[in-house]
Design a protein around this nucleic acid. Sequence first.
DNA 1: ACCGCCATTGGAAACGTTTCCAATGTGGAC
DNA 2: GTCCACATTGGAAACGTTTCCAATGGCGGT
Lengths: 340, 340
Amino acid sequence: MSRTTIKDVAAEAGVSLGTASRALSGNGSIAAPTRERVLAAARRLNFVPNAQAGSLRSERTRTIGLLIPDIRNPFFAELAHVVERSARSEGLSVMLCSADEDPQQMHDYATVLRRQRVDGIIVAPFSTARDSLRELQGSGTPLVFLDRTIPGMGVPAVVSDTRDAIADAVRYLVDQGAHRIGYISGPSETTTGVERLAEFRAAAAASGVDIEIAHGDFQEHSGRLGMRSLLARGVDGVLASDSLMTIGAFKECRAAGVKPAQDLPFVGFDDIAPFALLQPSLPLICQDLHSMGAAAVQMLLTQLGGVTSSQELRLEAHLKLPSGSEADSAQPIDPHHHES
Amino acid sequence: MSRTTIKDVAAEAGVSLGTASRALSGNGSIAAPTRERVLAAARRLNFVPNAQAGSLRSERTRTIGLLIPDIRNPFFAELAHVVERSARSEGLSVMLCSADEDPQQMHDYATVLRRQRVDGIIVAPFSTARDSLRELQGSGTPLVFLDRTIPGMGVPAVVSDTRDAIADAVRYLVDQGAHRIGYISGPSETTTGVERLAEFRAAAAASGVDIEIAHGDFQEHSGRLGMRSLLARGVDGVLASDSLMTIGAFKECRAAGVKPAQDLPFVGFDDIAPFALLQPSLPLICQDLHSMGAAAVQMLLTQLGGVTSSQELRLEAHLKLPSGSEADSAQPIDPHHHES
DNA sequence: ACCGCCATTGGAAACGTTTCCAATGTGGAC
DNA sequence: GTCCACATTGGAAACGTTTCCAATGGCGGT
């Protein structure tokens, strides 16, 4: 049993309960020999402190919440991994919540996290979850938005700046001979959905190319439907605006007997591992996931330190073209194996 | 601020603290009108109970730990999602820990979960983490093994039974003309690594075909190395024993100018979404992820109920062949869009 | 030698729930 | 009419830490 409490440790070490606590938590002054004696006793008794009791008194849980739309989305899985590592290295545990792109579920999770009294929350929000998030904000929980944001809430955010990458993508599609570019957009409830669409429109206008828009919801299925609709509208180039819709669009092409990136100029989104299997490889808009996750944790830490800010950090995304296909790069086939 | 406590709610409702608690938690008898009054008061005050305080007294956290090797592995991402959903529907929160296939990290997480006093833990273990897990077990935390197990620990487990699927895969490769089949194995620290290898050996022996083994570690990189080694050894058919190594093996083929499943008969592992993008599509050994995750949660619930068992549930995996490629099935190209 | 400061320690309060126990009231059975 | 069982409620203890406060002792400065 872990029925061992700090009281037992104190007795074993021959000190008072308060002293034992100071030795174990590292707060308050304590003589080195005493600390050693307590630590030894704790080790001997295989003592593991009760986090509930500690948090109750100290009002800090050393735990943060991570509220993402869907862990099955490889983009968010990778992001979750990065956040988790960063947090861990700061001594924070992460409670992961995957809301299935559903505002109601996001609301429920927000309550769970509030009940758990997490020290702070990193969230990729929908605008339709604004009320739930305001509630959290009102309860004093430090928030950081990641990947997406909700303008006007005064919450600091880490997002990608996709303007140039999308412009590059449009230029690339035009170079490939496209005159009528289809775009599969994300939902208007997300800033990524709205902004990327606006950036695409602007870029297309600058290039003087025709466009067709299919409205999607960042799920694979809508990628399929979007591509189906765009094909019916006779586009000769397509840009999908997230990884799952890229997968869906790709599948639909296949079902329609069209080879994306060969028969049909195509640019996908997010550099997730399995895309590297595709032959010929896909042009992709890549986000700097690692920096995003790490930055979000740092921002949250800043807030936990009592500093309130509403800074928005924008990290450049970029267009990544297939290595050898356009003969514009003489790079080796197998540069370095381990991607991390 | 969420400075509102149950005491405030009690005052607002004009009842004692104990009564308020009974009304809110649903334990103990309480008159319906009283309960309504308390609930109304709680709503009015926007009261969210402090989980730490409750757990401290009740010795239950309504939280379980999920300890998996790597959330970036789509197999585990999907599994995590299923577990999370099942747990949530039982009113349990999940604390997700991703150990990067590293026993030391698994040990650290085990301590974190113990400190958090989670009610139980679902874990996909390495045998090298046996000591950490014994410690958990010794502390009285209910455990369930998922995907992998450690024999002899008396911990209930949910695993795939891959014997028949692997035999089918070997037969398939032979049918494709293979005489010397390469196998990329998982690490010997996992039961999945050991058992699948044994099953492969047995199936190959039964088919009278030559084999070559490359030892991997369930990471993409080792899939590459494994495939490289196997190609050098002149195999004419390959089976990779998990999803990440399938990705690695696939990439290596590409780098070597060999088309897997065309030039080289190939069977991969796990039916993860992006594999569906491949053209021609890959024969895959598929596990019943959904049932596995749900069963693990149910098993853990049983244990939380005080029943100790060491039951091992084995769910059949199966070989899934490319739909039309072998002309053995006349199925539509696009059966149903939404996979969940 | 005396005083005061600081480091160290012990003791106890406090955190916000749940749950145990006792007190009260209400209804039915005899 | 009396008594018992039961439902409901109030009050208080308990959970295991952290942290505040006060007490002790040693040490250097004067």
